[in-house]
Design a protein around this nucleic acid. Structure first.
Length: 172
DNA sequence: GCCAGAACTCTGG
DNA sequence: CCAGAGTTCTGGC
């Protein structure tokens, strides 16, 4: 696993890749915190600090997704998670740019009843690849932005940048 | 190891 | 308002 420490308009950005694609994209304020977060997510994995060179272009692709979400193409992803989590993450990737969905809708999309939205929210929270798996496009059924693992203000910023409309239902 | 409780929720009584 | 549904993780015993 190769680790790239970079920056973007939302703060510090850590991107971890394998030969299969992007494993993790973590956003935060402090590089050391991001690094320990990565370690707790993938215990026992060997991490190699890569030169800030971005040989395969994956880091550039992730940054492009953050800065120009409407035009950028996502990099290949290497999804590490349980069966259930991967199902949720795949459903998330089918949400188009500029649109939002709800935890209840996602629950139905992966074959559960709408009342199991809480399990879906947990799977979103466990998502290791910020922005490329667009868990920021999931809002509560009453239109509230709800929570976001990497900060509620980053969620709002990303949605505004994408031009999402359903995010503020009462703002007419 | 096992059990209880919490975590980015929603629905029905 | 309160509880229950469904999954995973964490902390106390």
């Amino acid at each position: 696993m190769h680790v790239y420490m970079s920056g973007c308009s939302l703060g510090r950005l850590l991107v971890a890749t394998t030969s299969d694609g992007v494993v993790a994209a973590l956003i935060g304020d402090d590089a050391a915190v991001l690094r320990s977060d990565l370690h707790s997510r993938f215990p026992g994995t060997v991490m190699v600090d890569a030169e800030p060179h971005d040989t395969n272009g994956h880091v550039r692709a992730v940054v492009a997704l953050i800065e120009q979400p409407t035009t950028a193409a996502p990099p290949p992803l290497d999804l590490r998670g349980t069966e259930f989590q991967r199902a949720v993450w795949l459903a998330l990737q089918r949400v188009p740019v500029g649109r939002t969905t709800t935890y209840a809708d996602l629950a139905i999309a992966v074959g559960l009843s709408s009342s199991s939205s809480r399990a879906v929210a947990l799977a979103c929270a466990a998502n290791p690849i910020a922005v490329a798996i667009p868990c920021h496009r999931v809002v509560r059924s009453d239109g509230d932005l709800s929570g976001y693992r990497w900060g509620i203000d980053r969620k709002r910023t990303l949605l505004e940048r994408e031009g999402a409309r359903a995010a503020q239902p009462s703002l007419f």
